[in-house]
Amino acid sequence: MSKIVAVVRISMDGVLEEFTPFWDEEEDKFQRGQLFASRALLLGRRTYDAMSKVWRAMTHEDDFAARMNSIPKYVASTTLSDADWSSVVIKGDVAEQVAKLKREPGRDLLVYGSAALVNHLIEHGLLDELKLLLRPVVVGAGRHLFPSGVAITTWALAGTTVFSSGAVVLDYRPVGFGG
């Protein structure tokens, strides 16, 4: 059975954004470890669209780009009917299909970004780890990881990693539901 691990980059005010000035060798090592420890990516459609445009163009880069381009990807989408870039669209009941993928033997399934997918996985008890990559910046506006009205869940801090840039990885595991 595989674990489902989500890595989500957020600002101090909880906004999902890309803050490239904070990417450094330490984060590169962290991200490389996550990608190479995984057997496949689970992505929402918006994240898939953004990542596929960027990474397809990086065919000449290093082994990270080669891994990103070749790793199997499962895309949860109600609007996408077909996908390329080593991808399969999850059709029908996303929770049911992801649960089947999770039951397969092998390494982790990695979720990048994909706030709606992360929330769906949490709602159905499928997310095993949530790694918040907290960037030391307040951006003031944007899309948040958790929407207003989300069900209360309790998480246990399993570990932290502090980068010299001031970014912090907060590694959480679900422990139950409340409220």
Results as ranks from 00 to 15, higher is better:
Met1Ala: 12
Ile4Lys: 01
Val5Leu: 06
Val7Met: 13
Arg9Pro: 15
Ile10Asp: 01
Met12Lys: 02
Asp13Ala: 14
Gly14Met: 12
Leu16Trp: 09
Phe19Met: 14
Trp23Asp: 08
Glu26Tyr: 07
Asp28Phe: 13
Lys29Met: 09
Lys29Val: 11
Gly33Phe: 03
Gln34Ile: 14
Gln34His: 13
Ser38Tyr: 12
Leu41Glu: 08
Arg45Trp: 03
Arg46Asp: 03
Arg46Tyr: 03
Val54Gly: 08
Val54Asn: 09
Met58His: 05
His60Thr: 11
Asp63Pro: 13
Asp63Met: 14
Phe64Leu: 11
Arg67Asp: 14
Asn69Ser: 05
Pro72Met: 04
Ala76Ser: 14
Ser77Gln: 09
Ser77Tyr: 08
Leu80Asn: 10
Ser81Ala: 15
Val88Cys: 12
Val88Trp: 11
Gly92Arg: 10
Val98Tyr: 03
Ala99Lys: 10
Lys100Tyr: 03
Leu101Arg: 01
Leu101Gln: 00
Lys102Phe: 04
Glu104Asn: 05
Asp108Leu: 14
Leu109Thr: 06
Val111Phe: 00
Ala116Asp: 15
Ala116Trp: 09
Val118Asp: 05
Glu123Thr: 07
His124Pro: 00
Glu129Trp: 07
Leu130Val: 04
Lys131Gln: 04
Val138Cys: 13
Gly140Leu: 03
Ala141Cys: 04
Gly142His: 00
Arg143His: 13
Phe146Lys: 11
Phe146Cys: 12
Ala151Gln: 09
Ala151Ile: 11
Thr154Arg: 09
Ala156His: 09
Phe163Tyr: 01
Ser164Met: 01
Gly166Ala: 03
Val168Leu: 06
Val168Gln: 02
Val169Ser: 07
Leu170Asp: 00
Asp171Arg: 08
Arg173Asp: 04
Arg173Trp: 04
Arg173Thr: 10
Pro174Arg: 04
